[in-house]
Amino acid sequence: MAAVALNNVTKAFGDLEIIKGITVTIEKGEFVSLLGPSGCGKTTLLRMIAGLESTTSGSIFIGERDSTGLPPEQRDIAMVFQSYALFPHLTVLENVLFPLRMRKLSARDKQVERARAALELVQLSHLADRRPRELSGGQQQRVAIARAVVSEPQVLLLDEPLSNLDARLRENMQEELIQLHRKTGLTTIFVTHDQEEALSLSDRVILLNGGQIEQVGSPSELYSKPSTRFAASFMGSTNLLDAEIVPHGDATAAHLAGGQILQLADGPASCGPGTVMFRQEDIQMRPSSGTSQLTGVVVTRIFLGARVRYVIDLDGQAIRCLASTDKLFEVGETVGISVPVDRMRVLRD
């Protein structure tokens, strides 16, 4: 059953359309990320699901219920804010009790029991009587999460909840979020601009760009099979080469801007101007004498420990390559580059 269904949802502020017709269904129990660069509309979309922003057209279903015009308190949701938005005048326990009291869920003594259980879930029972300002950032974060999950909402909405934490705490919280999701089974929508975070946390990623869905898929699909140039470049450091795709025997070949030719596996259907994409870790480098597909000149070499990153100039287009430390190439050296045919993709702009 769908936990959340968006049907051709739009949002406009005056003439400015922020969300341009989004249709997507989120299944019960799924952990879905709304991923995109700043200004892509991901937070606006989340706030529309929460009822904090009105919907210009289209409809939003939460569970079975058409929630399009409902105020936030009548939607079966809970939201964790970027700033956590803990109530400073209440203790940790009172903060967690808040949604139970407001929604009048269960009897008074049961409420305290439930709130304590939620604090247990985030391992903060011992701080129940503290005020939010007495807690560290990570602890505040957990209180915010406990406060959101305590009412067992139909959907849990998270608005960049990890962006205010330092790198190490962030990794810990990512692991905890995964565990929490497993324990509670709550349908979760997670907004982030960090593709790594989206990939590591989600069952499914919704990639947004300019108020529209660019691609929806599992993390591995988005990473290895981006369908557009934007998706490819957003999903990680990757090489995108402008090319003219032409028929070549049974398959196709890419005529690169500098004149070199790259054999492709795709059929002739994809002919015309396009972009050839391959990841930096899929490149094989050899001394130029070899039988490589392409030839370039090493511009930069950065030693990363286990690997070496090269920037190679390919007739004016820079490509990045992550290679092993077994054979080192010097800056200025001419090298041969090969990419397995099945690791290359042709993208439409």
């Binding site: 009822g51 939201m79 804010f81 009412s151």
Partner: peptide
């Protein structure tokens, strides 16, 4: 925090 009121709304307060 300007999000406090919104947080209250999403947590069930009219």
């Amino acid at each position: 925090d300007k999000f406090l009121e919104e947080a209250g709304r999403t947590l069930g307060a009219g």
